[in-house]
Amino acid sequence: MFSNLFNFASPQAFYPVAGRMISWFGWSAALLGVAGLYIAFFVAPTDATQGESYRIIFIHVPAAWMSMFLYLVMAGWAGLGLVLNTRLSGMMASALAPTGAMFTVVALVTGLLWGKPTWGTYWVWDARLTSELFLLFLYLGFMALKEAIDDPQRADRAGAILALVGVVNIPIIYFSVQWWNTLHQGASVSLTRAPSMAATMLAGMLVMALAAWMYSIAVSLARVRAIIVAREQDAAWVRSGTR
């Protein structure tokens, strides 16, 4: 069984599998996105204190979760590549970085637009906001570093070290609202206690988060295919067009 599983660690074997999965995850993302938006605007009630501006959280929170989670997955793949020296691992890490950076930008921008009506300011240098901005720089640094090194194997190794060192920033983002006195509020949803919001609001947020997951998987698979083709362009299976 495991020998079968490891077969997919070869870019050649993974390429068609990824291709078949893209549309499945893409359509799941689209359907969940529509359902999530419907709940966000037509089911969830107006917030008692924030009014309608709170509806920004239906994208802000899933995007912020995704920005942190994708970093962990990216660092995980990068670390796996460092240890096992598998080619596909570095490609997976590279495929996740732009999407992670995109969700970080979305989390930051929607945060600005939520902060202005709610706090009266677009930006403060508090621990949560600053560490999330630092996350964006980590993603961009990872991408720039890999881009700057011509030899793909060396690029993978250097990128992996940067990604792994940067992992320390994730718990800092997540726990910043507990460790420091931040303007950013504490978690409204946690695994250890009941959420502090209406059930329909929570449902909308979770459906949107699920949509963000499906979207991330779909675009990462599409990107890893593009990376495979670019890196393996001299390999016989790519040149012969059998892909």
Partner: peptide, 14 residues
């Protein structure tokens, strides 16, 4: 509710 620019700005950027 008066927050149109912020809400639609957020969804638009996304």
């Amino acid at each position: 509710g008066g927050y149109g620019a912020f809400v639609w700005g957020s969804y638009g950027v996304t």
